[in-house]
Every structure is written in structure tokens, then in C-alpha cells.
């Protein structure tokens, strides 16, 4: 499974990074960095939580 950020929609709320610290991070500039696009099976729940909390639906999971 992969986690994909739609950069045109992402506005940097960072809720996703709080939900999935293994996968996503807001850098010092306030921009979202994908730490690991590939979601390890142990992180699947984190990835789903991140997708769920993004207020502008900028994240999606792909098989």
C-alpha cells in the first residue's frame, strides 16, 4: 500500500502527521514531507487515520 499526497490540495494542516508520524511530517517551513510513501503493513492503521483526518481530502491510499 502507498500513501499519496495531492500537493495541489494539501494546505499543511498537519493533522495527518500527528496521526501518522512514521509516514508524514511537517517540516520547519510548514510543508508536508512524506517520510515513506510505501506503507509497511504495521503502519496501515496510521495511514488510514491520516487519510481520515485530513480536512481537505488531500491524501489517498493506493494498493
Amino acid at each position: 500500500m502507498r500513501i499519496i499526497v495531492d500537493e495541489a490540495r494539501c494546505e499543511g494542516y498537519g493533522f495527518c502527521a500527528e496521526a501518522a508520524p512514521h509516514l508524514l511530517e511537517l517540516d520547519d517551513e510548514g510543508d508536508l514531507k512524506v517520510l515513506s510513501e510505501e506503507v509497511a503493513s504495521g503502519d496501515a492503521a496510521q495511514a488510514e487515520a491520516a487519510v481520515r483526518v485530513c480536512p481537505v481530502a488531500a491524501l489517498r491510499l493506493e494498493p
Binding site: R9, E11, Y13, F15, A19, R52, V53, P55, V56, A57
Partner: peptide, 17 residues
Amino acid sequence: VDHLAFGYGMHGCAGQG
């Protein structure tokens, strides 16, 4: 965190920050 008071998705509140 996933309440809908700011809407959600493309039109999700632009001023929520």
C-alpha cells in the same frame, strides 16, 4: 478531529487554521 463543522474535502473551510 474528523467532525464536519468545517465541511470536508475540496470546499473544507479555507479559514479553519
